[in-house]
Nucleic acid binder design. Structure first.
Lengths: 242, 242
DNA sequence: CCAAAAGTGTTTGATTTACACCCATGG
DNA sequence: CCATGGGTGTAAATCAAACACTTTTGG
């Protein structure tokens, strides 16, 4: 019985346990009019390098539960999670120097958080602006550069035909705040007047009846996401230019 | 050292191998004007049941390589593969009675094959019509019903904004043949005249100069996919009705 | 000649875009 | 009153849907 096959799952089993299973989380938010991602400072291997939060899946733990647990351990903000989806799985041999580690990546979106730094524990989770990280490949440990790029690309694509943008917003938000999400994630400009008309004509925004002047100027109506709104919009909400 | 953590990856390692890694393949094609999926008859557990082709990833083997290898082992048609992408990862504890098995699913598209049955080996890989399978949950082993449904849904979605439909076609194809792909996968009818105008106005079809009368009637121009065509079309090629 | 499918033209309505203009607040 | 952003109206351009009509083959 060759040892590089690992160990039998059960005594006499015909299958072998020969890899370690991890989850990594791409947690995106918008602050200071920029896209930010939550990163930790690694200790074990690749010490001192920045990395996505994540960790090993427990025996008998579901993948998504593991992602939520790791996020809670390393930060402390699971309350505000508005969106969580499986992103992609990374399993290239050699991606982790410790052995065969395969990592299921999750994409998580939250609104900007009141506290500047969530999870002020030893690991030191902090927000980092995304554009700079994408400009400098090699700034993250393991293959986390690739995972981050894939996560951002997924978020960009989903703004077009889902209600994902609202996951970056507080419970109640103005149309202009929602528009800023699109403008920042797509790095583009959108006509405020046409955007307003288009978004208020869909059935995914529900007026709260309140208004706010927090953005200056004339008071803006506040909206929330309709409870029964489908996540996927057909036709697409907006089209990203080439 | 609790045994349910698995075994250390290396002597003295701080990580444990505690799961088995598999790939499963959703291989779709169109034949007899219907969507078909390639299934095998299981032997080991769930014997006699139908299942997606797949198997365990070898140590030091990349995930995508494993998918291609398993496809080659159980069928024998890797030549015709036009599209391969990672679909999703399934890791619910208990999804496999043999232990903790996590499976990375791949979606593969091929054109209709000359031979009625690819891979006439012991395992007995055969084409099965998709609609009947989706109508009867429980017809596949493990959680392969879910995986198949996710694969079909991915293919449906991607027809809308990518050139994926051409992956179901032979090298050279007519506009009408391409239209049949859409009609079958979306279970809808498309106006042949508007479809023709729309598709020939994109830059992803390249006329071969040849014509064919294989569909009857007036000879139709043959096209192939342009070498340098981007896979993603913006604006979307066609919109699927609600 | 007829049936069948390819392919073009045209009309109509919907959607998108650009931008003029008015509204309601804070300072 | 004025600067600031919220919000509505409208005309032009673009796109989508429906369908009349012509073209080119096989039988």
């Amino acid at each position: 019985m060759p040892s590089d096959l690992g160990t039998p799952a059960q005594p006499g089993s015909r299958i072998w346990y020969n890899c370690a299973l991890a989850v990594d989380i791409v947690l995106l938010t918008i602050r200071h009019d920029q896209l930010y991602v939550l990163l930790i400072n690694r200790s074990a291997p690749q010490a001192g390098q920045l990395a996505l939060p994540g960790g090993f899946v427990l025996p008998d733990e579901d993948l998504q539960d593991a992602a939520l647990r790791e996020l809670g351990d390393e930060t402390s903000l699971q309350v505000a999670i508005r969106h969580l989806e499986q992103l992609k799985t990374y399993g290239r041999p050699g991606r982790d120097p410790r052995g065969r580690v395969i990592s299921v990546a999750y994409l998580v979106i939250t609104p900007d958080l009141p506290e500047p730094r969530p999870g002020t524990d030893a690991i030191g989770a902090r927000w980092h602006p995304v554009p700079q990280l994408l400009d400098r490949p090699g700034s993250l440990a393991f293959d986390h550069d690739t995972i981050l790029a894939d996560g951002v690309e997924r978020a960009r694509a989903k703004l077009e035909y889902t209600t994902l943008a609202a996951a970056f917003c507080q419970d109640d938000f103005t149309v202009a705040e929602l528009r800023r999400i699109y403008e920042i994630v797509w790095a583009t400009r959108l006509d405020p007047r046409n955007f307003h008309r288009k978004l208020t004509s869909t059935d995914f925004l529900e007026p709260t009846g309140q208004t706010t002047t927090r953005d200056g100027g004339r008071p803006a109506a506040l909206y929330r996401v309709r409870e029964d709104a489908a996540g996927i919009m057909n036709p697409p909400l907006l089209r990203k230019a080439d």
